[in-house]
């Protein structure tokens, strides 16, 4: 009983950490975008105010049971992937280190590939229920784009799996600690392919076709206001953090303490953000073609590299 209670508290601590860091990243990104536009930009805590305001809306119209499932699926996806991904490296020496080892069982990479596509599918159901044509178009685009970036992403992961004969993220981190080399140097092609897939995964420009605000009226979320939007916003922040942590775990050797974690994830996060600031928007077929071009080729190289060496 006590064990379960402690585990639950630890899981909640992980969630709170992911929420705070993810929301802060969102605010910082808005600040950085503002500075890149040569304006002041909102304060870094603006996302927290927005979230609290959305939470304190007094009315929230829903469009039936499936509409709730859209937001719920997103939240489930975010939290489950956060629980599966080891937040800190197992060998770390910080006193809070054991808090964040939630459910890192063996074989979690396969499960992650599955669960990370789960949220958009639930979103598709919820968006279909709202009856807004923009939502349907946005969801179609989102799934097409997912088909695009999943291929280099899975190729990169498969290359790692072939090389090290494991699918456990914890094992990957142990291997990196033992050999002393980050996997981004051990198999650079896999890292490049994964980073290129990341551009699509985070949905910044030029791959923001899903929720294009001026074109699609923010796409799948267009019928969601108030508390629905709060759920989606927070789950998006948590999911962003979870994905960043997964990248850090796989390619940058994980992090021994929270400071290193924040530094590494932030640096990684800047790749899609800064690329997005200076990019216009691709159309759906352009995005898919882009992902199935060089990223897939590099992913193929990564697999060849893994097989040959």
């Amino acid at each position: 009983m006590e064990y379960i209670l402690i585990k639950t508290l630890e899981a909640m601590a992980t969630f709170v950490l992911a929420f705070i860091v993810g929301m802060t990243y969102g605010g910082v990104v808005r600040k950085i975008t503002g500075r890149a536009h040569n304006r002041l930009g909102p304060p870094w805590y603006q996302n927290f105010i927005d979230a609290f305001k959305l939470l304190s809306k007094t009315r929230g119209i829903h469009h039936g049971a499936m509409h709730f499932l859209g937001a719920a699926f997103l939240m489930v996806t975010s939290v489950v992937s956060l629980m599966i991904i080891p937040v800190l490296a197992p060998g770390g020496d910080a006193w809070y280190n054991s808090w964040f080892t939630n459910m890192n069982f063996n074989g979690d990479l396969i499960f992650l590939i599955y669960i990370m596509t789960f949220g958009p599918l639930g979103m598709a159901m919820g968006a279909g229920q709202t009856g807004n044509p923009n939502s349907s178009i946005g969801v179609t685009r989102g799934l097409s784009q997912m088909v695009g970036f999943e291929i280099p992403w899975v190729m990169a992961l498969v290359a790692l799996m072939i090389t090290y004969k494991t699918t456990s993220v914890v094992d990957f981190m142990n291997i990196q600690r033992e050999t002393g080399t980050w996997l981004m140097f051990a198999n650079p092609f896999a890292f490049i392919a994964a980073v290129l897939a990341m551009l699509g995964m985070f949905r910044y420009s030029p791959f923001d076709i899903v929720g294009a605000p001026t074109e699609l009226a923010s796409g799948p979320v267009s019928e969601n206001g108030g508390k629905f939007l709060f759920t989606m916003m927070s789950s998006g922040s948590v999911f962003t953090f979870a994905k960043l942590v997964l990248y850090v775990d796989l390619f940058m050797g994980g992090a021994n303490n929270l400071v290193m974690l924040v530094v590494k994830t932030f640096l990684l996060y800047m790749i899609p953000v800064l690329y997005g600031i200076v990019s216009p928007r691709y159309r759906t077929e352009q995005a898919v073609r882009w992902f199935w071009g060089w990223p897939t080729f590099i992913g193929l190289l990564a697999i060849l590299y893994a097989v040959i060496f």
Binding site: G34, G41, P213, E223, G225
Partner: peptide, 22 residues
């Protein structure tokens, strides 16, 4: 909204749909 007067620093942001807007 854009860089000259930058209403976003005061917390104003564009919302695409009426459901999200205040």
């Amino acid at each position: 909204m854009t860089s000259r007067y930058d209403a976003e620093r005061l917390g104003f942001r564009g919302a695409a749909t009426p459901r999200q807007a205040d």
